[in-house]
């Protein structure tokens, strides 16, 4: 059985230390990770995009991401798009709360009180709806899920931090270039397990599998197909 990474949504909070809405961004993200959509989401500490390595920057190419920003400077969105890939959705906390008529209190910066946690919950519910839309999942309405969260707060699910998620990145030659491929090994194994004996359409199958997690332009597809066939035959040569 192939241990293929499950498709999840990456949540990136700005966590802005100067502002109450920065704290709410991280609290809301943790609520989604721990209680509302623990099976469908992972996170990454935002400054890792700059301080981290290729694996950490591969995060947003591997996962569709939602940027959760405290203010209109939108550091989380801008950093994700600068260092990794375009975000799938975005939430700006101060704007969203203002639209809802929720006043933000400066003391929430350090520790949100009950009303601060409720404001974060409102943001978390919005994020959960976006997660469902991105993954095409059907969930009960967010309000129904909030009741579940109340119970879950005593024993939150272990939230996933992407710096321990182990997205495998493999560099292979494609045409004249060396290219990073996300999840190459499990995807090759998956294709092999599904259709091990036949060469018919093997290149197209490999390409289809790899494209789930890697952005490949249509004009580059023939080169990628050749490269993937070569990698596949190196691993399963006798059988392919």
């Amino acid at each position: 059985m192939v241990d293929l990474p499950r498709k999840k949504v990456g949540l990136i909070a700005c966590s802005g230390e100067e502002l109450a809405c920065g704290t709410l961004s991280r609290v809301a993200v943790r609520q989604v990770l721990e209680s509302l959509r623990p099976e469908d989401t992972v996170t990454l500490c935002l400054p890792l995009f700059l301080a981290g390595n290729e694996q950490e920057r591969a995060f947003a190419r591997f996962y569709p991401t939602i940027a959760v920003d405290g203010c209109d400077k939108q550091c989380a969105k801008r950093a994700t798009e600068k260092y990794s890939a375009k975000v799938a959705a975005e939430v700006v906390v101060d704007k969203a709360l203002q639209e809802q008529g929720i006043a933000v209190h400066p003391q929430w910066r350090r520790q949100p009180d009950q009303s601060g946690l409720e404001a974060a919950r409102y943001i978390a519910e919005r994020i959960a709806v976006q997660v469902d839309q991105i993954l095409g999942h059907e969930h009960p309405g967010p309000t129904a899920r909030v009741g579940e969260q109340q119970e879950a707060q005593t024993a939150p699910a272990p939230a996933t931090c992407s710096c321990a998620s182990g997205i495998p990145v493999t560099q292979i030659p494609v045409g004249e270039r060396l290219v990073d491929i996300l999840a190459l090994e499990p995807l090759l194994t998956l294709v092999h397990e599904q259709a091990p004996a036949r060469n018919d359409g093997l290149g197209a199958k490999l390409l289809q599998a790899i494209k789930v997690y890697n952005d490949i332009s249509p004009e580059a597809e023939p080169e990628y197909e050749q490269a993937l066939l070569r990698e596949y035959r190196q691993r399963f040569g006798k059988e392919a």
Partner: peptide, 20 residues
């Protein structure tokens, strides 16, 4: 806020990181 108010402050790390 408690130990050295008035002589310390912070900045958002992400804002710094993004070159503000």
């Amino acid at each position: 806020e408690d130990l050295r108010p008035g002589m310390t402050d912070t900045v958002c790390l992400s804002l710094l990181t993004m070159g503000d």
